[in-house]
């Protein structure tokens, strides 16, 4: 097995094009366990962390860009980012432990394509875009377009994600991410729920996006719940409709981590709770901050 650490995006793409059994990695917190267990055996491992733009967080007037290999600890520690995207920041802060978060990246979390990846529902509700580099230049995808099933992505073998673009959080908007795990830390989501809302001046909901993790092969949006919330103030009846829609949107499996019944029921509970938190945050976010 060969280890290479290109210093530019171009160098990396040409490496990938010339070596068919190459695999990129960022924090390697998924890659190393997979190598150890014998599940994967790439001939070349391409370290993305030496490419500058992949390991930085920037914000200009309209958007944030987060390098795909940036340790997720940056997102929880960057006060202005976590103030603006508390839900996404909390999702990143749920990955593993402090030690893991000093290595783990959004790019790895997304492209490992685990149905339970914590940052993905939070990225989906925030409309995050992935900038993908390949031999023919770059293309931009919605995060929701990247994963097609467990371990499967729409990226070609010689493509990788350079960075994520996140539009600034509008006024009167807020996000939230909650997950259920039996333990408080070092665990994998049995159910994850992300929500983002924007409020109208009268306090009713103008926009809502809800997404669930760990309850289907990929992250699922909940259009019925989003619909139910529009124009409402998230009264109890609406929230119950959100919960019912979330449960119905699940397509989970029975496994050692949870049962179908449990996942469906708790998806409803977490979706409802995430909406409530997102609304509280949206209420606090007006012009002045």
């Amino acid at each position: 097995m060969k280890y290479v650490a290109p210093s530019s995006v171009e160098e990396a793409t040409s490496l990938l094009s010339s070596s068919p059994s190459a695999q990129v990695f960022a924090g390697a917190t998924d890659v190393v366990p997979q190598l150890r267990s014998g599940r994967t055996a790439p001939e070349v491992l391409v370290d993305l962390k030496k490419i500058k733009e992949l390991v930085e967080v920037n914000s200009d007037g309209d958007k944030w860009t987060v390098g795909a290999a940036t340790p997720t600890a940056y997102l929880t520690e960057d006060e202005s980012f976590s103030h603006e995207f508390p839900g996404l920041s909390e999702a990143a802060g749920l990955i593993g432990s402090d030690q893991i978060q000093n290595r783990s990246s959004l790019g790895g979390n997304l492209c490992n394509a685990s149905p339970a990846a914590d940052s993905v529902p939070a990225m989906v509700v925030n409309g995050v875009r992935a900038v993908v580099a390949g031999p023919n230049g770059t293309r931009v995808l919605d995060v929701s377009e990247v994963v097609t099933g467990p371990g499967q992505t729409t990226l070609d073998d010689d493509e990788f994600i350079v960075e994520f673009e996140i539009d600034k959080m509008p006024n009167r908007s807020g996000d939230a991410y909650l997950r259920m795990t039996p333990r408080t830390e070092m665990d994998i989501a049995v159910v994850g729920a992300g929500a983002r809302v924007t409020l109208a001046d009268d306090g009713s909901i103008e926009q809502a996006v809800l997404a669930l993790g760990a309850v289907a092969p990929t992250v699922v949006r909940i259009p019925d719940a989003e619909q139910a919330l529009l124009g409402s103030t998230a009264d109890e009846e609406t929230l119950n409709a959100v919960a019912a829609a979330a449960s119905a949107a699940c397509n989970p499996i029975d496994d050692k981590r949870g049962t179908v019944e449990y996942r469906k029921q708790v998806a409803g509970v977490l979706a409802k709770r995430a909406v409530v938190i997102a609304i509280e945050r949206a209420e606090q976010r007006n012009g002045s901050n």
């Binding site: 039996p182 333990r183 830390e185 070092m186 665990d187 994998i188 050692k256 981590r257």
Partner: peptide
């Protein structure tokens, strides 16, 4: 055995 690791064999962590 389906859970022969500390990920899925859940001993408590300090924050629990």
């Amino acid at each position: 055995m389906e859970n022969p690791s500390f990920l899925d064999y859940r001993i408590p962590v300090a924050s629990d």
